[in-house]
Each structure stands twice: as C-alpha cells, then as structure tokens.
C-alpha cells in the first residue's frame, strides 16, 4: 500500500457499512447539538463585549423550562442512537448456527488459527467470502485483542476463558488484522492478514492445506489425544473408574454437584479439562486430574472439537 492519506477505511462486511452509517449519522447529530453552542457563545461574547453599548436589560438568570428542555431533548436524541447502536452490537453476539468455527489462540506475539478440518495457519487467516465465520478464541498468556478494521470489529482474547466473534465478510480481499490490546514489547508487531477468498478459491486453499498442519480434522486430532492422554481410561463404559460418559455432551444440560445446572458449551468443556474442580458433575467424585499444566490451548481446542463431534455422531444416529 502506498503511503498516502487514506481517509476512510475499507469496509469488508455489511456490518462495517452499518457502523459507518451509524457514526456518520451520529456525527451529524453532534453538529446539530454543538453548532448552536459555538455560534451563540461567540456571538454573545462579541455582541455583549465590554466596550459596546447594547441593551442588557432584563438579562435572565434562570428558567426552569429552558433547563429541562436542554437536558431532556439531547438525551432523547442520543437515546435513539443508543437503541440503534445496541441492536447492531447485539447482532455481533448472535452467530448464525451454520457459521464455520475456527479456533484462534493468541500468544505473545502471534496469532494461531485452527480450521475445523485440520488446516492450521499463523498470522494469516483465510476465510470464504459470504459465509459466516465464527472465531472461538483464547489466549495463552496475556490479554490480546483481535481487530480487523475493515470489519469494524474487535474482541479481546482472555487467558483462561473463551470469547468469540463472528463475521460475514462479503468482499474478497486482503485486510490487515491487528492486535489492539497492549500485550507487551512487540504488541505493535502482532499483526496479520485476513484473507477473504471467493468460496471456490477457499475450497482449493483448504484442499492444499488440509494436512499441512495436523493429520486429519481437528476432531480427529482430538480423538487421538483423547486416547493418548488416557481420558478414555476413565470416560468409557468399560472403565473401572466412575466418570461421566462424554458422548453427545456438547449442548446438553449438565447437573452439577452444587445443585446448579448449566449447558455444556466450549467454556464448560475446556474448564472441565483444565480446572476439573471448578464445576463438578453431580453424582461423581472430583477425582479427575487437572490438565492445566499439561496441555497447550490448541490441544484443548482439539479435545473440545472431538467432544463436540461426538455430539454430531449422536445426532445422526
């Protein structure tokens, strides 16, 4: 890119255009509220300056209705924008069910992406245009923030928990991807590129990279880990230890020992592996070892993907 002034950033999604529209309209309203202030203030200061003989009789020093007016009217105007902005924001938290799940792990100072079918990449993220993509993100060390200006979207990645972000980029192209949360020495170098490809090109790319990273899909890698780490030693029907069966657990309600219930989601599954004592399943003793110091986040992602896929198997039965 050339070093000129670029006055408006490109917009790669419908959402981005909506945000531009929102800020444009808000900007217009801001002028509406402030121009009178600036104009009147200068005009009064000049018109009523010391040396001038003007009529200063009956200068008001209070007026309840005027006060109420200028408190309430701007407030109501802004409230309209509040509703608009909040609706747009809420959309960002309602991913369509068919969004492609891509796992993201950030660490000082790189981005690691795992596609559902096994392709892995660092710093560059390839996605198909016009298809919703959901990023399931976590961090290995400090807080980072996934930021693509062209999407007008940003989400922090917090160690120890999952956050997610979904988008539907409809304009193919290469868009810068930046880390927006200060994360130490090379924060400003922690960048990458979001590459939005026409779907057919994406398919080709996937085909080329499918086993570039791992053997098989993420879930298959998870299945291997599940065996190798000895999870199946407890979590299988044949095991002597009493541990809950895990087939089809994803998305199901789980009864907890402290009386509560929750839906088994990404966060719960990963917590169960990393911090098993945090929430103990009802009817079981808290004997599951913690894998917190043993597993890298990518491995946890693979395990979670495997546990999810066992749901898919169940459903298709």
């Amino acid at each position: 890119m050339s070093a000129g002034i670029e006055l408006w950033p490109p917009a790669a999604s419908h959402h981005a255009q909506q945000v531009d529209l929102l800020i444009g309209s808000f900007g217009a309203m801001v002028w509406l509220l402030t121009i009178p202030v600036f104009v009147l203030m200068s005009w009064f200061a000049i018109r009523y300056r010391r040396s001038r003989e003007v009529n200063r009789d009956h200068a008001p020093t209070r007026n309840l209705w005027v006060e109420v007016g200028w408190s309430v009217i701007p407030f109501i105007l802004v409230l309209g924008f509040y509703v608009w902005a909040t609706m747009l924001f809420l959309d960002l938290y309602r991913p369509p069910p068919d969004a492609i799940p891509i796992h993201v792990v950030a660490k000082q100072w790189m981005w690691k992406f795992q596609h559902p079918d096994g392709a892995r990449e660092i710093n560059n993220l390839h996605v198909p245009a016009g298809r919703p993509v959901k990023l399931i993100m976590t961090s290995e060390d400090v807080i980072h923030s996934f930021y693509v200006p062209a999407l007008r979207q940003k989400q922090d990645l917090v160690p120890g928990r999952y956050t997610s972000l979904w988008f539907n980029a409809d304009k193919p192209g290469r868009y810068p991807l930046r880390c927006a949360e200060f994360c130490g020495a090379d924060h400003s170098a922690m960048g990458g590129t979001l590459i939005v490809m026409p779907p057919q090109d994406y398919a080709v790319w996937l085909g080329r990279n499918r086993d570039g990273g791992m053997d098989g899909t993420l879930a298959q890698a998870g299945a291997r880990l599940f065996r190798d780490l000895g999870c199946s030693g407890c979590h299988s029907a044949a095991a002597s230890v009493k541990a809950p069966p895990l087939e089809g657990i994803f998305g199901r309600p789980v009864a907890l020992a402290d009386g509560g219930t929750l839906i088994a989601d990404d966060q719960y599954l990963s917590d169960s592996i990393l911090l098993p004592n945090k929430q103990v399943a009802a009817g079981y003793r808290p004997i599951m070892p913690t894998y917190g110091n043993v597993l890298a986040p990518e491995q946890v992602n693979a395990l979670v993907a495997y546990l999810k896929s066992s749901r898919a198997r169940e459903d298709s039965k």
């Binding site: 907890l256 402290d258 004592n277 945090k278």
Partner: peptide, 8 residues
C-alpha cells in the same frame, strides 16, 4: 461466583 463448589 466463579467457583461455587471449590470456594465452599
């Protein structure tokens, strides 16, 4: 709130 059982 985050670790109800563990806390107790």
């Amino acid at each position: 709130l985050e670790h109800p059982a563990g806390y107790v």
